[in-house]
Design a protein around this nucleic acid. Structure first.
Lengths: 221, 221
DNA sequence: GCTAAGATATTGTTCAACAATTCTCAATAG
DNA sequence: CTATTGAGAATTGTTGAACAATATCTTAGC
């Protein structure tokens, strides 16, 4: 029953891996001719693959100039956190009326992060953290908010590339995630919301600091 | 200085106008061959235009069946208003720290709606109303929120097609818009937010009622 | 009337050629 | 030396076609 993937989907997968693996750094132009020859597909098929990646915000398209690996600058990260604050706070406010499965997804993500941290898998801690915040926004019960969060998270993953140590970044937030989940479970929605707001501000500052750091290094190259 | 648009973008514009103008009612199938011949573009380019409209949620794509003009059902409208509540409330909360031009855009939209109502142009009242709410969300100062609101408004316009009398729908909200703008100008953010919440709930009910009405009529056809 | 098999029409995918645009870089003017 | 301009090269945009996969319609049989 497994549906075979189209050529374009396979090509998109290869490019996605290269981008997320660092083989294609942000800002790189993806030449249609060169890549098409490299991957053994026609330009048209390659462009179809590009469209999939554009939809994922992994690359951007500039008319008559081609596609480039997305560069997430500080203004983007700041904006992403602004939207996250709006959507996740909306989720927290809707927590009281949210169904059981939605609320359990929140605590489940916290527990998964804890297990991953105990095992030293900080990559997985990062994934669980994103799932936790996605679950917060999902408390609204809105498919459109879910989709928007997925797009924001994909963009954020690109910015995380700039973080030197996943552990240093994620570890402090483990306890705060747990605290947030507890406030929600106890029905302390107002306090949960204010804690979430400062939480997101703190995380934003950490990432902006790392981006500035990386930029300073880049100047000497 | 004029930036040239790609063929696909032009075609998407034509289709967008036809859809919003009612020439292509919700549910219509957009045949690749017929439309391509009609507009004088290749299937490949037409499909590219479709992708743009899919991204705007104006049409939907069903595998191996083609693209159809989006049918906005009650669940969609409910979800759209959920997201609107999240984004517009976020804007109201950010109003205190918003810049002068953003705050003035809010009052400007209210005044334009008033002038249009005085002139009896209820179509324009509707447009000004959408601008008003867009301006509320824009108080956050977030490009992504602005873009999200634009998409939501485009979807909503499809649903408005079901409203029999623009006047009956928009008139009651004129005074409420004015009241909301005043609360904001006076710094009464908490009250503005709670008024906005009930406002959106009321508007949602009106639209859902009209949709149910239209569906009942449709059964006898 | 209903079902099933085959015929037809439509969309999905890929390709190669041609058109339009941008980019490169040397020549030139200030 | 800097800025500009213009021809040529490189790259992307668009097209039409061919073939595959899927859906829809037609028809034969029960």
């Amino acid at each position: 029953m497994t549906m075979a993937l189209s050529t374009a989907q396979r090509v998109a997968g290869v490019l996605r891996d290269r981008i997320e693996g660092g083989g294609l750094p942000p800002g790189t132009r993806l030449s249609e001719e060169a890549l098409g020859r490299d991957l053994g597909v026609s330009r048209n098929t390659l462009r179809e693959a590009f469209r999939l990646l554009i939809h994922e915000s992994l690359v951007v398209h500039r008319l008559n100039r081609g596609v480039f690996v997305r560069v997430v600058d500080p203004a983007d990260v700041t904006d992403i956190y602004r939207v996250r604050a709006a959507l996740e706070c909306a989720g927290v406010r809707a927590a009281a009326g949210a169904g059981r499965p939605l609320r359990e997804a929140v605590t489940a993500a916290v527990e998964e992060a804890g297990r991953a941290a105990a095992g030293g898998d900080w990559q997985e801690v990062g994934s669980a953290d994103l799932r936790f915040h996605r679950a917060l926004a999902a408390l609204s019960g809105s498919p459109r908010i879910d989709a928007a969060m997925d797009r924001l998270m994909a963009e954020l993953r690109l910015a995380f590339h700039a973080m030197p140590s996943p552990r240093r970044f994620h570890e402090p937030f483990l306890a705060r995630n747990r605290a947030l989940a507890k406030l929600l479970a106890d029905g302390e929605y107002a306090r949960a919301e204010s804690e979430l707001t400062t939480y997101l501000d703190d995380a934003l500052e950490l990432i902006l600091g790392a981006l500035r750091e990386r930029e300073r290094e880049g100047e000497n190259a």
